[in-house]
Design a protein around this nucleic acid. Sequence first.
RNA 1: GGGGGGAUACCAAAGUGGCCAACUGGGACAGACUGUAAAUCUGUUGUCUUCGGACUUCGCAGGUUCGAAUCCUGCUCCCCCCA
Length: 435
Amino acid sequence: MSQKVTDIYNELQWRQLVYQSTSDRMGSWLLERPRTVYAGFDPTSDSLHVGHLLPLLMLRRFQKAGHRPIALVGGATGSIGDPSGKSQERNLQSLDQIEANVVAIRRQMSELLDFTSSDHSALGPALLVNNYDWISQFSYLDFLRDVGKNVPVNVMISKDSVKNRLENPDVGISYTEFSYMLLQAYDFVHLNRTYGCELQLGGSDQWGNVTAGIDLARRMAGAEVFGMTCPLLTKSDGTKMGKTEGGALWLDGKKTSPYHFYQYWRNVADEDASKCLRFLTELSQEEVEHLDRCRQTEPERAASQIRLAEWLTELIHGAAALNLVRQATEIFFGGEIGKFESDDDLNQIFAEVPSSRLAASRLAEGLAIADALVEAKLTKSKGEARRVVVEGGAYVNNRRIESETHQITTADLSSPTMIVLRRGKKNYALLRVVE
RNA sequence: GGGGGGAUACCAAAGUGGCCAACUGGGACAGACUGUAAAUCUGUUGUCUUCGGACUUCGCAGGUUCGAAUCCUGCUCCCCCCA
C-alpha cells in the first residue's frame, strides 16, 4: 500500500495538460500530501464519449499519483444544462432519463478508476457521487438564503459563458441555465465539507465554473480550495476530436464498436498524434518522444497512431477485444481471406458487417456475381452491381472479380456457411447460406 | 387583391417538338496513386436485359401530334414585384 504521492504536476506539465491553475505553487502543494480532487461529468447520454476521456484520465492520473479522485456525475446540474460553450438554450431531459444515464456512466467509470481498494491513496478509493443527492435536498428558499446570498450577480454575468449568451439577443439565456453555475459552485462547497475535497479539475471551458466554486467555498466556508483546467482536445483543424460521421465516438462498445474505436485513433492526423499520445495515454515521456521522432523519420509506418489506438482500445475495451480488432484490421486491410474451419472466427471478426441469408440451393446452382452483390445489399440494383464489377470494385473473400459473368459457388465459402463479399475498399457484407 | 416568374435525376442547373435517359457543376460510388492521410487524375452515376434493345422518368391530371421535358387545358405548390 503506497501512501506516498508522486510528482503528478511535473507529469502533467510535460504532457502539456496544465492550461490554467489558480495557484502557481500547485506542484509543491500536490507533493505535500494526498489531496482529494474532483471533476464533473454531465450525464447527457447513456454512455461517456471521447470528450469525457480527457478529464476522466486526469482523475486516473491523480489516483495513480496517490491522490483521491472524486468523479461527480451531474444528475442535478445535467438536468439544467451548462451554458458554457453552448450557443443555444438546451432542452431539458427527463429525470428518469438522467437517472438511467447516471447508472450507465457509473459502470463505465469503474473501468478506469479504482472505486474499491485503497491501494493508490492513503485517503482511500476513488469516490463516485451524484450531485442530485444533495442538491435535490434543498428547498428553493434554503438555496437562495444559504447559497445565493453569497453569490454576487455582477460577478456571474461577467463570466464568459454567461456574457456570450447575454450579448446575443437572439438566443439569450434562461434563468435556469443562468443558475447552472451556482449549482456547480455549490458542488465544490459540498465536496469540500463532506470529503475535504480541495481541487477541481475541468476542461478549459470550465474555468468560469471552477473559479465560481472556489469563490463560493471561500465565502461560505472560509475554505481555500484550488482549481486547474486542462486544454480541450481539439484537432489541428480546429474541430473537436472524437467526432465521427455517425456522431460522437462512444466508449460503449455497443454504440461504437471496438473496431471503429480503434480505427478512429489509427487514422488520427500526424499533426494531432503527439497531442493524443500525451493527453490520452499513460505512455512514458521517453516513449512519447521516441514516437514523435519516428513520426518525423518514417511517418508512413504510423507507429504513433497504432500505439495510440492499441493503448486506448485495450484500456476501454480490454485485451481480448483488442486482439479481435487486430485480426479484423489485418483482414480488412490485408490480403485474401482463407478458409476458416468454423463460422465462429469469421463471425467475430466480421461482427458488425451486415449479413444476408442465401438459400443453399441458389449457391449450388451458381450465383452470378451481380446477383450476389444485390443479395448482400452492397448495391441497389443489378445494373449498379454490374458496373461495380466492370470497374474492378467487386471482391469475393477479398479476391477481385474480373469478369462480369463470374459465378459464385460452394467453392467460394470461406467457412462452413459464409461468403465474404466486398464492394470497393471497405464495404463488406456476408452471405450466410441457409437450408 | 393586382402583375410577373418558376417546378427537370441526390442537390444545383441547361434543354423550349424528333439528334434526350436528358449538357454542365457539386455530391456520391468505383479505380489509379498513397502511409488505412491529404491532394490529384480516370471512369461511372434511372430500371431490366438473351447486350440487339426493352421499359419507366423532366410538379399532377388530361389533350394535340406519327412523335412531347419541350405545344394546349385544368389543378397543386413555390418565388418575386406592386397594393
